[in-house]
Amino acid sequence: MPKGKTTFAYEKCKGCLLCVAVCPQKILYQDMTTLNRAGYNIIKVSEPDKCIGCAFCAIMCPDSVITVGVEK
């Protein structure tokens, strides 16, 4: 399995959860204790090591919040 890394531009996140819904590894969750300046609960990665770098989350993100890297 390739190893991936997601980076979130949190201030642009609107907490819509589309990324959470499509993550095949089920490692994204909405942090109900952290708001960004726009007032949205942001998305975090529960187990970063499990990320496979598929970029489904980034592909579905309407606000271009997520950058995905993969280890070669």
């Binding site: 609107k14 980034a58 271009s64």
Partner: peptide, 29 residues
């Protein structure tokens, strides 16, 4: 680490005015 997906430079840095989860944003991208 190689970048597999990042915000396209075909969009400006202006935050989109669409509601959360609206797929307009996806089509814009």
């Amino acid at each position: 680490m190689e970048v597999k997906y990042a915000k396209t430079k075909g969009l400006t840095d202006k935050p989109l005015t669409y509601c959360p989860g609206c797929t307009h944003g996806i089509v814009h991208k």
